[in-house]
C-alpha cells in the first residue's frame, strides 16, 4: 500500500462516517429550520423534543420490549401533539418576528421539559439498541455501523418527504404562502393560525423521529437535547435558516467537519471548527448557503 493511501484512507473513512452522522444532524435541523422559515420562531426547546424522542425509543425498547425503530411513527405523533400544544399555549403569540421574549419563552419551555424528563426518567444515561446494533458493514476498505446507515436513510427519506410535502401539496403551498405574507394569505381565505399550528406540529414531529433514530446508537439523558442544540443551530445557519434541504446539507457538512477533526486532531475538540464556522457565517453570510432573503 502506498503512503498516500495509508494517510488518505482514514480521512476518507472519517468523511464517509461524517456524512452518516451528519444526516441525522440534518434531520434535527430541518424541524428547527421549518419553524423559523414559516413563523420566524427560533425554537430553543426543539432539542428537548429530540430528547423526548430518544426516550420514546428507550421506553419502547425497555418497557415494551419492541425495537425502537418500530416506535418511529408513535414518536412522530407524540412529539407532533406536544408541539401543537406548545404552539397553542406559547408560540402562537410570537408568530412573525423573532423577539427576545420569544427566545426566553422557548428557553424556559426547554428547561421545563428537561426537568420533567429528569423527574420521570432519572438522570442516568439510557440507550435503546435496535436490531442493527453491533452490526457493521464493510464496503471496500471502509466500514460502517449498520445502525448509522439505517439512521441516515431514515433522515434522508424524511427530508425528501418534507420537501415534497411543502412543494407539491395544497397544504405545503398554504404553509409557504403564510410564511411569505400572512395578511395576504388570510385575505385569500387561508386559516393562518391553523396552518401554522400544523407546520409547527410537523417540525416537532421531525424532532421526535430524529431522537428515536438517534437513540439506537447514541445514549440519552435529560440534558441531551440541550447539548444537541448547538449542532442543530450551526447546521441550520450554514444551510440557511428557513431552507429544509439546506438544513439537511448543513447537517451533513457539520458531521463531516466533526468526524475529520476528531480523526486528524482530537475527538474532544471535534466541535471547535464548527463554532468557528458559525462565527464566520454569522459575520459574512448570515443567510447561509441556501437561505431565504433576510429582512
Amino acid at each position: 500500500m502506498s503512503s498516500i493511501e495509508t494517510t488518505m484512507l482514514p480521512v476518507l473513512q472519517a468523511v464517509l462516517s461524517g456524512i452518516l452522522v451528519g444526516g441525522v444532524y440534518g434531520l434535527l435541523s430541518i424541524g428547527l429550520s421549518l419553524a423559523f422559515g414559516v413563523m420566524r420562531i427560533v425554537n430553543f426547546a426543539h432539542g428537548d423534543l429530540v430528547m423526548y424522542g430518544m426516550y420514546v425509543g428507550v421506553v419502547a425498547s425497555t418497557l415494551l420490549g419492541i425495537d425502537p425503530l418500530l416506535a418511529l411513527p408513535a414518536s412522530f405523533v407524540l412529539m407532533a401533539i406536544l408541539g401543537a400544544l406548545q404552539y397553542r399555549i406559547v408560540f402562537r403569540r410570537f408568530v412573525g418576528h423573532t423577539t427576545l421574549n420569544q427566545l426566553l419563552a422557548a428557553i424556559g419551555l426547554g428547561l421545563a421539559l428537561q426537568m420533567a424528563a429528569q423527574l420521570v426518567f432519572g438522570v442516568d444515561a439510557r440507550s435503546a439498541p435496535s436490531m442493527f446494533a453491533g452490526s457493521y458493514d464493510l464496503v471496500g476498505p471502509f466500514f460502517f455501523a449498520r445502525a448509522q446507515i439505517v439512521a441516515f436513510l431514515v433522515a434522508g427519506v424524511a427530508t425528501i418527504a418534507v420537501e415534497l410535502l411543502l412543494r407539491k401539496t395544497q397544504w405545503g403551498k398554504a404553509v409557504r404562502a403564510v410564511a411569505d405574507n400572512i395578511e395576504a394569505a388570510e385575505i385569500v381565505g387561508l386559516r393562518s393560525q391553523r396552518i401554522n399550528l400544523t407546520a409547527f406540529a410537523l417540525s416537532c414531529g421531525l424532532a421526535g423521529i430524529a431522537g428515536t433514530i438517534m437513540v439506537t446508537y447514541y445514549p440519552t439523558d435529560p440534558t441531551k437535547g440541550f447539548t444537541l442544540m448547538p449542532i442543530a443551530i450551526i447546521a441550520t445557519t450554514i444551510g440557511g435558516l428557513g431552507s429544509v434541504g439546506g438544513a439537511f446539507l448543513g447537517g451533513i457538512f457539520c458531521g463531516v467537519i466533526q468526524q475529520t477533526t476528531a480523526m486528524l486532531w482530537n475527538s474532544a475538540l471535534q466541535d471547535v471548527p464548527l463554532y468557528f464556522l458559525l462565527l464566520v457565517f454569522i459575520a459574512y453570510r448570515p443567510t447561509g448557503l441556501f437561505g431565504q432573503r433576510s429582512e
Binding site: 404562502a177 405574507n181 395576504a184 388570510e186 386559516r191 431565504q292
Partner: peptide, 28 residues
C-alpha cells in the same frame, strides 16, 4: 377573521398587490 370574510365570498385585491413573492405564479 379575514379568512372568514374571504370564505363568505368577499375577495380583496390589496393595496400594493401583496402577491406571494416566493411562490410560483401557478402556486399563487
Amino acid at each position: 377573521a379575514p379568512n372568514q370574510v374571504a370564505r363568505a365570498g368577499i375577495a380583496h385585491v390589496p393595496e400594493g398587490r401583496q402577491i406571494f413573492a416566493n411562490l410560483s405564479v401557478g402556486d399563487n
